[in-house]
Amino acid sequence: MTLRTDVSGGFSVRVWTAGSGSPLLYLHGLEGHPGDAPFLKRLAERHRVFAPELPGYGESSGFELIDGILGMALHHRQLVTSWGVGALDVIGHSLGGMLAAEFAAINPQLTRRLVLVDAYGLWMDDPQVPDPFVLNETELKAKKWAHPEAAGIEPSIFVADPANPGAAALQRSKNLSVATKFMWPIPDRGLRGRLGYVEAPTLVVHGTEDRLMPVAYADEFARLIPDAKVARIDDAGHLPMVECEDAFMEAVEGFLAG
């Protein structure tokens, strides 16, 4: 696997790549890129995985060129086109799920199968999505994980530097500031009206214990996307691919092989 930097149209983004086989785009979630995550490596056993960092996150730049959700979808189209791999499978988690759904709606010709994992992008008055930006560390842990003690195993692309103890907080603030463009004050940028344009067969994966993004939203995504089914991952929170890796892999690979 390699971590390279792709430059296109004013953007410079880090792309984690590994594996061979059918191409797969993975878009990371609200908090940041998972780096060398075990679940990404397992996906790379059967796929050629491309996991770009979102512009503005970590060390990737070009966020100022993004004018809203359409700009993000077009940025990802440009990236995918530059790889020359044709249509691919698309997996998006959390904020990345919202962006993956937009990508699939706008670029049906590039989307083979779509997997949304605990995705943002919809709003219901009941149950409402909690505001992720007001949570302190303890509250976030409690909402994010089925078992908060699992928090220690979360993979990240960020490498701590003992000489710069403030770097982690700065990095986190930078990442989340980009997310506010799409998720503040309500994580709804009109996706509901565009899900009908998704042509790819879709799997909506959701941790049953996700208290950041209530599981009822999985059913709502599945209702709005023409060809979609739901895979609930029991005993998992907002990151089922971390907390219940085997169940996640089984559901996703089963679907992608279908």
Binding site: F133, V134, L135, N136, R172, S173, K174, N175, L176, S177, V178, A179, T180, W184
Partner: peptide, 8 residues
């Protein structure tokens, strides 16, 4: 404290 330093 939740309202004092929002990201961005």
């Amino acid at each position: 404290p939740a309202y004092v330093q929002p990201p961005g």
